[in-house]
Write a protein that binds this DNA or RNA. Structure first.
Lengths: 224, 224
DNA sequence: CCAAAAGTGTTTCACGTACACCCATGC
DNA sequence: GCATGGGTGTACGTGAAACACTTTTGG
């Protein structure tokens, strides 16, 4: 009895620039779907964990490393891959677009960011995977402070607000937002302000990871 | 290059009786860990989806069918199984203990319910899988009306309250609970009451699935 | 001095929370 | 008639939501 299946890992990488929420796609240089834009990913090797596969493929195919990564869902429909029975464990990642540069490499012709509402046609069930990832991101950003992963280390409150507005796709009141986020005491106010802006420079803040973990221990729940 | 891996599905089945939250375990009749209590599960067959595997294994090993089932997480550590590289896609299920009878069958010596705070030693990483499942159940029960899956179709408000108290492991105020749950208008009040109780009989209710879907469309969010 | 975004408080309303007694029924 | 759980209302406080003007800076 041969029960062995092919297992891949695919990654939905979200990035934020000043304008929009984007996804990182690679142009496949291998069959099937050679030449098409697709989610980065590849086969799990016998000696590596699923998460290791995700990190390795991201680095190999797009040059990204040290990113926030979390398992999303596992897709195992019988006919999802023309090569045969392939189960894929999907992950999603969050990166700050400004601080990471991407570059195509192994098995990939090209790697590029696409606006989430202007995606090319995706192969396999990658569109479905993307949809699940976006839904997860929208839900999770409200009750876990993962949004900071999309921003540079030092950011302004307005940048933070924009992030939530873009991910949640809804307007947020400035005063209420500031009141709430500051009242959580998760942001460290820096003695620095923006530079090179053509108006009053905004104060910079940092997310205080340590403090968050302490508060969480005590039963605190992040909630936007 | 041989990239094929073994893939299994394991299920954490939660059940509720009048006293406690329980988990369904099976006594393995095959190596490895023959004779030990473990989560029900087995290999994914080439022609079946992951969910189909879960349903099939549940039926074969425990006799359960028509249960609420949802994917939990995929565990793929390299050394999690002594047989070699085995990735397992874990599911969790919710059943009403009174309305389903279980019976051991294929590859299984025995099947039985265990109190969640008195589990036997589990093989593989099944304890870790159970922990993730319990955590998920506790979290999800608060923002999705899945708790009803643990009750009979017709239930009293007190039963419903007990369910939440057991799953969340905390006391809940009776009047506030009733006010809140009834204000959602998700329960259909029946013209029936409990029978065979040695005190005033409580009114029976049913969860109104259709209404829930309608409200959800309009942006309603269940929240306890 | 003008444009652009930063920064800041108050009022209102809804909802969560705390809390105790009478009622119906079976034995 | 007594034991057992069923069923009900109010007061209080906290936090969410709505809302507009002044300040700072660069060009």
């Amino acid at each position: 009895m041969n029960n062995k299946l092919l297992v891949t890992v695919d990654c939905v990488v979200f990035g934020l620039d000043e304008q929009e929420l984007k996804v990182l796609l690679i142009e496949r240089d291998l069959e099937p779907f050679k030449g098409q834009w697709a989610l980065p990913g590849g086969f799990v090797r016998p000696g590596e964990s699923l998460e290791q596969t995700a990190f390795r493929e991201l680095q190999e195919e797009t040059g990204l490393k040290d990113v926030f990564l979390e398992q999303l869902y596992t897709f195992g429909d019988v006919a999802r891959d023309p090569r045969g029975r392939v189960v894929t464990v999907a992950y999603y990642a969050l990166v700050n677009l400004g601080e990471h540069t991407i570059q195509a490499a192994t098995d990939v012709k090209n790697a590029a960011w696409f606006s989430i509402d202007d995606l090319p046609k995706l192969p396999f069930d990658h569109l479905q995977i993307f949809d699940v990832a976006l839904k997860r991101l929208k839900a999770k950003v409200r009750y876990e402070p993962i949004g900071f992963e999309l921003l540079p280390e030092k950011f302004t409150l307005t940048q933070l607000q924009r992030l939530y507005e873009k991910v949640l796709d809804m307007p947020i009141d400035k005063r209420n937002f500031r009141k709430k986020i500051l009242s959580m005491e998760l942001l460290k106010e820096l003695n620095e302000v923006e530079v090179d802006v053509a108006h009053r420079a905004a104060r910079l803040y940092k997310f205080d990871e340590t403090k968050y973990r302490q508060l969480k221990e005590k039963g605190f729940n992040f909630e936007l």
